[in-house]
Simulated scan of single mutants.
Amino acid sequence: MRSERVRLFQTLPHPCGYYAERTAQNLVIDPAAPRLDQLYGPALERGFRRAGGHLYYPNCPQCRACTPCRIDVEHFAPDRTQRRCLKRNADLDVVECMAGYNAERHGLYERYLRTRHSGGGMDEADASDFRRFLTAPWSPTLFLEFRKGARLLAVAVTDVCINGLSAVYTFFDPEESARSLGTYAILQQVQLARRRGLPWLYLGFWIEGHGKMDYKRRFRPLQVRTREGWVPLSP
């Protein structure tokens, strides 16, 4: 990605999605830039993340808590808890599907948001919200569906780039929380990356000590992006 050919925009301050008392700002690659699909891989390498049709990077003046992270696919080995998760969900079928909206997926998405993000502004997502947040016309996205027979239990939204997979979002049936389907989705995306010969699974941002974001450190070996580039996260 050559900076002289791609414009970056800075968003206005807005409420932080991770800390209620903080405000946040992002750098966003020009959404009208040509060949965003070709920019996506290099942008991931530089720590950017996709949300809908935007590639963004946190650029908060007073905070640097959001740290890009990625799993080293070749050397990853599940720990004991993750092996139990794989065994617990061995009865599920995992199906690679074209990304897109349908009523079944949307119903599951709505139930997940009502349970996990009640009152957060996302819990009344209609069909256009689903499409706008999870897909983009230029994005190389697929959906991994997790099914128990005909019943859809979870969907992992993942982008397939030349240098790795990017785990964009996972939503699942709230009644199946005992299965640890979020963890299972990451483990299945690691396996998908291996099948496709891709070296990295990008997990977005790790926030040390954060109740909802610190779990990513359990997927080892994990790399984080610093000013010096990508480095292994210390145990």
Rank of each mutant, 00 (worst) to 15 (best):
R2T: 14
R2I: 15
V6D: 10
R7I: 15
L8R: 07
T11A: 01
T11Q: 07
T11P: 10
P13C: 07
H14W: 00
A20D: 08
A20V: 12
V28N: 12
P31G: 09
A33C: 15
P34F: 13
R35H: 15
D37Q: 14
G41N: 04
G41F: 07
G41P: 12
A43R: 02
A43H: 01
A43T: 00
A43I: 01
N59S: 06
R64A: 15
A65T: 11
C66G: 00
P68E: 07
C69P: 06
C69D: 13
R70L: 00
R70P: 01
V73P: 02
H75P: 12
F76N: 07
F76A: 02
F76S: 03
P78A: 08
R84D: 11
R84G: 14
C85V: 15
L86A: 13
R88N: 08
N89R: 07
N89L: 04
L92F: 06
V94M: 07
V95L: 12
V95F: 03
M98C: 06
A99C: 06
A99M: 01
A99N: 03
Y101R: 00
L108R: 03
Y112C: 06
H117T: 14
G121R: 11
M122C: 04
M122H: 10
E124V: 11
A125S: 08
D126N: 00
D126Y: 00
A127P: 04
F130D: 00
F130K: 03
F130N: 05
F133N: 07
F133Q: 05
L134M: 01
A136E: 03
A136R: 01
P137R: 06
P137F: 02
P140M: 11
P140W: 08
L142Y: 08
R147Q: 05
R147Y: 05
G149W: 11
A150M: 12
A150F: 05
A156T: 04
V157D: 00
V160R: 15
N163Y: 09
N163L: 09
G164F: 02
L165P: 04
S166I: 01
Y169T: 10
Y169M: 05
F172Y: 06
S177I: 14
S177W: 03
S177Q: 12
A185F: 02
L187S: 06
Q188S: 15
Q188L: 06
Q189N: 03
V190N: 05
A193I: 09
A193S: 06
A193G: 01
R194E: 15
R194N: 01
R195E: 13
R196E: 09
L198G: 09
L198E: 06
P199H: 10
L203A: 06
L203W: 04
L203Q: 05
G204I: 05
G204E: 07
W206P: 09
W206N: 11
I207T: 13
G209E: 12
G211H: 13
Y215D: 12
R218I: 11
R220I: 13
P221E: 14
P221M: 11
Q223W: 03
T226Q: 02
W230Q: 01
P232A: 11
L233F: 10
L233W: 10
L233H: 10
S234W: 10
P235M: 13
